[in-house]
Nucleic acid binder design. Structure first.
Lengths: 342, 342
DNA sequence: CTGAAAGCGCTAACAT
DNA sequence: ATGTTAGCGCTTTCAG
């Protein structure tokens, strides 16, 4: 409510001086600064970021687009981003991007454009060339999490390699009947993560000379319920039951394990289940996971963004080398329980 | 980048007319409007919300403060809020409020104040008198979810009644050895939800004349892992094992059930577990839950807020009756499986 | 080191 | 129905 001019009057200086004193830009004698700061505190003055943004052109606000909020991986990433952003004095404006195309366009062409955000973090969303261009033409840095996109910095694991790695792990343990329960190949999230994980699985199976057919993959909802339902149906018949399952996500792995236990199957003694997101459920379920540290990915993305935002003193044309994909290291989180007997 | 004046020049009208044509406020002949809209589209003009906010005083943006993102109840609420807000043309700025007191003050005294938000939704956070006053003095409507707070509209279930109800349900089923596994009474979230749920449980036990002692309550982390760990320790000894458990949250209930199944205990045949948040896991776990429809709570909160924001033509002093707590109805979601045999 | 003045891009009276 | 004018609250030259 109180404005810069109020502070100026109280401190008996000009508005310009107040601005300088409070923002730290420009010279102000130490004593004047103190007077100003005291006056500001006295009347509870806080700058209007609107007015400030209007003239400076930046908003101290970053937009985050993300397809899900209530899913482990995404929720964790979001938390990581939020923490890092607030720590840096930035606000976070959240846009959940549904599959709905019109809604998506609306977010890009309306919400993100009206000069509210300085930059954008896209989590698990494969921006189109057009979207990237739009944002870049507006001079807004973008960083992505979850897959490579041309024209912007991204942070991601190699989903194919991850699935391959974890499958090889099971093969190395002596398993031969291995299934993959993962996201539907039809209604795919962006980056075709599900396809990539399936691909990694298939590759590993093939190179090991193991049988891989239509029965080896089971599509499911990425949720505990989905995993549970799939698990019940897969594990029902003892004769056709796999001895190991590669789950497309932790939620799915948990659902499968619950189903297995309900059917009286011991996990991991009689069935190995591995997941990929890796949320520290390993010890509890006796499952080995590939941890991709979502929270750190969030923090890291913010760091990348802030670097750009700060360097932005000399605008645009950054070295192409910077617009690359940073691999995120995977950590095999071994179960503490004994290895399964295939 | 292109500004209102560019559109004006292109359409050969004044800036005022452009503003009117695009915002829909004020009279503009149909043909001029068409010309303006075409011109705007041609150069990809989008209003600067900063400039606009600066003069109108409102931002089309609401702040959401929430203690957790990655927890079912909160994640769902957040999704509900996001969807409703976007649909109404509002942005959502997210603040995760940690237990850290300094951080919390910072959010209230700095972030929320700099005129970025028109209103605030507080989820699961008990605003202090000071915080409510601060926001109200700034003329920002607030609505809360999760508990009653004086001076603002809130939406919440009656946690005591909920726990009582669900406990009575178990008692009615013939259980006598019932335990409550819920959040620690020490490090409490706001609204002391854990205490309230414990209280409801205790009341039901007492009125039924059932034994209630120190052993009847087990504090736990609100997470699947927490429930699992608690479950293992509670259910290990068959002689002291309860026949039913009231879980403080769905995550906890799931953890307990996983532990039970691992120990070879049939759920719900040998053990009943009930939860409160109610995320449709009922059929899968054969557990009865009390559904509180988090997503709808989010939507509803937005609706309340929007009402205020719209009525705000005649500012402030709204009838006190409006500042009440709206009860959220609970729905008993019965398990489809047969009732347990105590 | 400080002040005066010129806008940032838009909206809202007030005219016409 | 449209144009003119005066700011919203701040930052930033430009003088001094």
């Amino acid at each position: 409510m109180s404005a810069l001019s109020d502070v100026a009057r109280l401190a008996e200086v000009s508005k310009a001086t107040v601005s300088r004193a409070l923002s730290g830009n420009g010279y102000v004698s130490i004593e004047t600064r103190n007077r100003v700061v005291a006056a500001a505190a006295a009347i509870g003055y806080v700058v209007s970021s609107n007015a400030s943004s209007l003239v400076t052109g930046h908003t101290k606000n970053v937009g985050v687009v993300i397809p899900f909020i209530n899913r482990w991986f995404f929720g964790e990433v979001l938390e990581g981003i939020e923490t890092a952003l607030i720590a840096a004095g930035y606000d976070l404006t959240l846009y959940r991007l549904s599959a709905d195309d019109a809604a998506r366009r609306r977010v890009f062409e309306y919400f993100l454009v009206r000069k509210r955000v300085d930059a954008v973090i896209a989590v698990g969303i494969e921006l189109t060339r057009t979207e990237v261009d739009l944002l870049r033409s507006l001079g807004k840095p973008i960083v992505g999490i979850g897959g490579a996109v041309e024209g912007m910095a991204t942070l991601s694991i190699d989903d194919v390699a991850a699935a391959e790695l974890i499958t090889e792990l099971l093969i190395g343990l002596g398993h031969t009947r291995i299934m993959h329960v993962g996201g539907s190949q039809q209604k795919q999230v962006d980056f075709r993560v599900h396809s990539q994980r399936l691909k990694g699985f298939t590759q590993a199976m093939r190179s090991a000379g193991l049988r891989y057919d239509d029965e080896s993959f089971r599509p499911t909802d990425i949720s505990i319920e989905g995993g549970y339902t799939a698990g019940l149906s897969i594990l029902a018949d003892p004769r056709s039951r796999p001895s190991a399952i590669v789950a497309g996500a932790d939620e799915v792995a948990i659902g499968i394990i619950i189903a297995a236990r309900q059917l009286g199957i011991q996990v991991p003694a009689q069935l190995s289940v591995v997941g990929i997101d890796g949320h520290d459920l390993a010890p509890m379920f006796g499952l080995t996971t590939l941890a991709q540290h979502p929270k750190s990915q969030g923090t890291m993305a913010v760091r990348l963004l802030l670097d750009e935002l700060t360097d932005l003193t000399e605008p645009l044309d950054r070295p192409a080398s910077n617009w690359n994909t940073f691999p995120v290291s995977l950590e095999v989180r071994q179960s503490t329980t004994a290895p399964p007997l295939p």
